[in-house]
Nucleic acid binder design. Structure first.
Lengths: 273, 273
DNA sequence: TGATATTATTCCGATATATGGAATTTTTAT
DNA sequence: ATAAAAATTCCATATATCGGAATAATATCA
């Protein structure tokens, strides 16, 4: 039906595309036919590639069935990729300290192109739903406290580019118009931190601060999510102060690492510009 | 130097091996030469494959450098694979309830061949170091509370096979001899749960229960890790009871899913039999 | 800073491998 | 039980892959 993807992909690229399709597909598994058609290649080709993907342990078949799904070994393998150059291990003690000090849910996000990715999270006593969702979740820069904190501290030109790219995506997700976003950015930049009550759930609120590396780039963010009543005027300033202190601690350990990432890889980000 | 891996791997298999090497390598990135030699192929081949892996977003180069490392997009992609057929979403509310009720750190493990993999974890107020470490971490079955709980409830033949396979690995990690393991298994099987003080850190303790699916297979485990003083004779029975209740809840939701995994994929598990 | 060694990247022809359509087998649906 | 759909295997052909050699880019050291 739909016009073929770009022709002449190497067999490897095609196979990787298959892996992506399976990984993004139904966790309960996908049928060969659907995988092949999603990839725009013949079933034979898809079949052979999937056999190899299975042999290498990236994909498995549901026992007794034919459906393919990503394997646990794949998950284990990629969990290491969440290090993003080692930053996650650096951040972990910071998160634990924050969670203990504040008794709220703490998030650690890093920038990845036009998005922020949740690398780690420590729960507080109240279940919090965040935009990023789980560890490994992704949000457009600008959506949510930490994500907005990063966006607000980007160099102007880059910020502008991200805004242009993300506006449609943000609107798609039902939040903010461009004016609102720009106002929020201005406020965040001025204050050096973000405080939003526009949580997913009424009664929830959060605050976020950027983690600025030695080159002045906002490579990550720390944020806290909690009950709105726990971020009232009396507590908020203290929370922000503590977040900022820990963000500085984290930034101090960052020098040896280069967490600046290359530009977004379209192939993996199903964004619509 | 070392004899070539099996010859005649398809280009895809070889490229996947490269991906695995990079993902397992230094989080700060690996040099082409080292990748190529680790994979036993020419640099040209490795180079071309890595270009494709980058184009598809599985690998990235440290900005300004040449080193290759797994990309964040890869991490994001695979985070979904941790679903293992959907079980993680089922377990999440259970974990949150347990954490709230017990105020201790809760782990959720699933079996994967000869190993247990940590799929999720909710922290309590005390930092706990577990054998699995982070989410995505892996331990040989038998090491740690949850992992032992799974092993202890396997059908006898399968249990025997796992024991034989894992004994060297367990000894390698400095724990238990075979007799000790078998004793611990017997106790666990009898009680229906596991309680160990042989934590990584003196003063820590934990307890674990298996999650048994409708076919009677121990597909997963719930465990708690905390201060030894919080698992004394007065509190332990209650903790175990609560764990068992939640394990049953979880098992009840399990029917529609098939979490039984195929046999261990050697290629991804760097185990030494 | 300049010279040199190491590593990364490109090029290339021979060869092995991937490709999709058709045939066959297995599974699912009726 | 039968029919329909999906999965898997087979095959001839076209094409992409391979590693060695040449070149370019970096890192190392004086």
């Amino acid at each position: 039906m739909m016009p073929d993807q770009e022709k002449g992909l190497s067999s490897l690229r095609r196979a990787l595309a298959l892996l992506r399709i399976v990984a993004r597909g139904d966790p309960a598994g996908m049928r060969l036919k659907d995988i092949a058609s999603a990839a725009g290649c013949s079933q034979s080709t898809a079949h052979r590639a999937l056999q190899d993907l299975m042999a290498e342990g990236f994909v498995e078949q549901v026992e007794g069935g034919k459906r393919y799904r990503p394997s646990l070994d794949f998950f284990v393998l990629a969990a290491r990729a969440g290090q993003a150059g080692g930053i996650r291990d650096l951040a972990r003690p910071v998160l634990l300290r924050l969670a203990t000090t504040l008794s709220d849910t703490i998030f650690f996000l890093v920038r990845n192109g036009y998005d922020a990715v949740c690398l780690d999270r420590v729960e507080g006593p109240f279940p919090i739903r965040s935009f990023t969702g789980d560890i490994g979740g992704k949000v457009p820069l600008g959506l949510g406290q930490g994500s907005l904190a990063i966006l607000a501290h980007l160099p102007e030109a880059e910020q502008e580019e991200v805004i242009r790219f993300n506006i449609p995506r943000l609107i798609d997700r039902g939040f903010l118009d461009e004016a609102g976003l720009r106002a929020a950015i201005a406020r965040a930049r001025e204050q050096g931190w973000v405080n939003l009550n526009t949580g997913l759930i009424p009664g929830m609120a959060g605050a976020g601060v950027p983690v600025i590396d030695t080159q002045g780039r906002p490579v990550a963010a720390l944020s806290v999510g909690t009950l709105a009543e726990r971020l009232g005027p009396e507590r908020l300033p203290g929370v922000v102060r503590i977040l900022k202190t820990e963000a500085d601690n984290l930034a101090a350990g960052l020098n040896p690492f280069d967490v600046t990432l290359r530009y977004p890889l379209r192939s993996l980000s199903n964004v619509r510009p």
